[in-house]
Nucleic acid binder design. Structure first.
Lengths: 231, 231
DNA sequence: TTGACGGCATACCGAGTAGTATGTTTTGGT
DNA sequence: ACCAAAACATACTACTCGGTATGCCGTCAA
């Protein structure tokens, strides 16, 4: 019955990882059983435990992948030679796009960071949790520093730095909560929505007009004004 | 052993409800056992099942209470005779305050609305879910209509109504995710933070200066700039 | 052809959990 | 003082789920 498909090992790994992300997203960690994930790819527990030593490791792998995705997304904007407003805009656009494109992973990531759910577990687990919190912190710091620099330059109107940063980031994360993919949605759709989200978020900093990105400068054709299908 | 304390029946009910809110918040629905909730108030399962027919009913009761809390909070601002900006500001302040004051309840509320976790249950359960989604929708509509009116009057700069509304609301909900109560925090602290959050959210609509509320017009003394303890 | 190994499926164990059935104490009316 | 009925606690059942042990089956090197 192990009818070896014509897929390489990393592909099988990724397939499981992706299935796990979707299950964890829809049902949460505790409510998702190993069997659920296995059935989601037409397999059984054996396969899952062949690739991941435990349920917790599977969950951590999903989060690691998610973190990797967001970091990779904003890296170009971080390293490019841009003004403060341009840099923050580019970072925010990239961030928001990833929120929609990989929104199963992202929801799992936010969920996991949200709760200490795993307080009473092993010491090793505690370390993994600490590592994730640290990465989240590092990620936030990327935005914090750009924001801080903008405040120094006087291009942002910021009342309280931490509160404003949190409000800004939560606005960017918004699509994770209210965006649901529709048939026909593609990268262009995501770009368009991300543009509007970022416009709102930047306006909160007192920035009225956004810089036009050099590469992607397509005019967002107005979508129908019905609500976006947040479930 | 049922050493009846000198508390009335509604008080015992509320005590259980509050404990359930905290447990569901910290560990999620699936990971929270009835015994966990019971032990949290120094009781056993018997007491919980005496007041609530099932775990699901307990969860629904928490959400009902949460919905009640937010609706009650913004009602005064809805019924008062105010300008669009004043009304939206008052609603937002009230909303954000509740997010912090009852943030266990609020996190359970958002969690529950977020996931369809309970898709494969009884028909009765599906109805309860539908009811909650409808209430959420009604609540959003309160804000949507004020926003819409402001757009008509030209006092808000809004690109896309639905996306802006979602971004606005998620910013107001922000404290649920990043605010953690500190020793010494009280209503005044919450007012101060809520003020800053609302300022950001309104700025996103292009409103630079907030109206001074008639009743609570205390100058928010600047807090230390260290971060707020989002874990 | 064969043997060995990777890649799984299957069967099973132990721990925990929702819900129930029943016993026991407290309370309030008379 | 007495007695329902309320307000629980305790014991138990049926079931789920994480994890393990084992075994089968195809693939490939020799």
């Amino acid at each position: 019955m192990p009818a070896r498909a014509q897929t390489s090992k990393p592909e099988r790994y990724d397939e499981l990882l992706c299935a796990a992300a979707e299950c964890f997203q829809k049902q949460g960690f505790a409510a998702t059983s190993i069997d659920t994930v296995a059935r989601h790819v037409g397999a059984t527990k054996g396969r899952v435990y062949h690739y991941f030593p435990s349920k917790m490791d599977l969950f951590n792998a999903v989060r690691d992948r998610a973190m990797e995705l967001v970091f990779d997304a904003i890296r170009p904007a971080l390293e490019a030679d841009l003004s403060v407003i341009e840099r923050l805009t580019a970072m925010s656009l990239a961030h928001t796009r990833v929120m929609m494109r990989h929104h199963s992973y992202m929801q799992v990531l936010l969920d996991g960071l949200q709760m200490q759910r795993f307080g009473a577990t092993t010491e090793f687990q505690r370390q993994a949790m600490q590592r994730h919190l640290q990465e989240r912190d590092d990620y936030e710091t990327c935005f914090r520093e750009v924001l801080q620099q903008g405040v120094c330059e006087g291009v942002f109107q910021v009342d309280h730095l931490s509160i404003t940063l949190q409000s800004f980031l939560i606005a960017l994360n918004g699509p994770v909560f209210w965006y649901r993919p529709r048939p026909g949605d593609n990268d262009a759709t995501h770009d368009e929505i991300a543009g509007k989200v970022v416009r709102y978020a930047m306006a909160g900093l007192g920035v009225g007009d956004l810089p036009v990105p050099s590469t992607t400068s397509e005019r967002p054709s107005e979508r129908p004004s019905e609500r976006h299908g947040h479930e």
